[in-house]
Amino acid sequence: MADGHEGGGLVIKPMDQFTISPMFGGDSVGMFTITNATFWMFMAVVAIILMMVVGTRGRAVIPSRAQSIAEVFYGFVYNMVVDVAGRDAVKFFPYIMTLFLFIFFANFLGLIPLSFTTTSHIAVTAVLAMGVFITVTVVGFVKNGAGFLSLFWVSSAPLVLRPVLAVIEVISYFVRPVSHSIRLAGNMMAGHAVIKVFAGFAAVTAVAPLSIVAVTAIYGLEVLVSAIQAYVFTILTCVYLKDALHPHH
């Protein structure tokens, strides 16, 4: 929490909440240390199992409430994959569902006060984005061979422009994982940092009511951002996958 000193300077440490520290003692974070990040990833797994496995254990034709929620998620992502990437992308549906549910739950669990937002770390989102990038590239070359390169050759443009456009397309292709990962991490980090800054100002009596209102408002915005960023990450994955499966413009 931020330390507010009445007389002295107001010290707000908005980035402290992102510090990764071991949960069970010890000072250093080794590769296999159970940290707060590990714990909240595990919580995401627990939440997903609760919703998708425990919630659907009835297998009812007329669903219970929990099963309805799981079915809504299933239908939402399934339709996204089919609509955006096409019917032949359905075999990637479990992978895309994994990404969506992990990001969704990591974002929302991070909104619990005093919890840790795993998706606010560039290490996490970069792995997710690189996974998508490598998958899409490999699938593109396996499915289309060298024909995948036609993705960079805009055949609808005038011939003179094509080499220029090809350079731009190649650059934009390799920028994809960067924008893909930084968009998510940046959104999550910025929102939580802003909340912490406003919360720090609550220590000053004069602006405390205003700061609490602001925290509430930003929190509401963050709830939206959590869902929207999970959606954006997933739909971009579908778009990239569509490029890999059908590279011709």
């Binding site: 990764i20 080794g30 590769m31 590990t38 795993t118 290490a123 792995v127 997710l128």
Partner: peptide, 8 residues
């Protein structure tokens, strides 16, 4: 990073 990537 290694810790996060491994557990992720």
């Amino acid at each position: 990073f290694p810790n996060q990537i491994f557990w992720l």
